[in-house]
Write a protein that binds this DNA or RNA. Sequence first.
DNA 1: GCCAACGTTGGC
DNA 2: GCCAACGTTGGC
Length: 154
Amino acid sequence: MPRYWLMKSEPAEASIDDLAGAPGQTLPWTGVRNYQARNFMRDQMQPGDDVLFYHSSCAEPGIAGLARIAGRPQPDSTQFDPGSPYFDARSTPAQPRWLQIDVTLVRKTRLLPLSEMRSCGELATMQVLRRGNRLSITPVTNAEWQAVLARLGG
DNA sequence: GCCAACGTTGGC
DNA sequence: GCCAACGTTGGC
């Protein structure tokens, strides 16, 4: 079972600085609308799992910091909010379709750009680098985690 | 803005 | 259950 994850966030929605500025430096990870990513939260994520916080859909995509899973998955509150872009009319509180999970900051790092990740042989296996990958949550192997930390210096 | 790749939907 | 059409993701 993976102990390490990479989680994508658009910095315009939730950046590493937003996480650093949040109460308790913790934010609920909402808006996941993909079953595979949801199932990772539901079936595999454990409190204490380590997370690579990745900025996507922005000028400088890449790993922006380290974080940690801070709780158990809960129903994603945005699915019930008609005003939210993540509203899902098929969900009900009795039968929620989507989950959120609390993520807490470990530390902001230098940006490890996507281009550098691609050029690093040790990271070549990372799922996020696979052609066409769109999963917002992907498991990271122990070796990949160690290689990222070595690059980040710590 | 473009567009490749993917997941989901819905007609049949 | 198949699969074409559609919408979304996300790097460039």
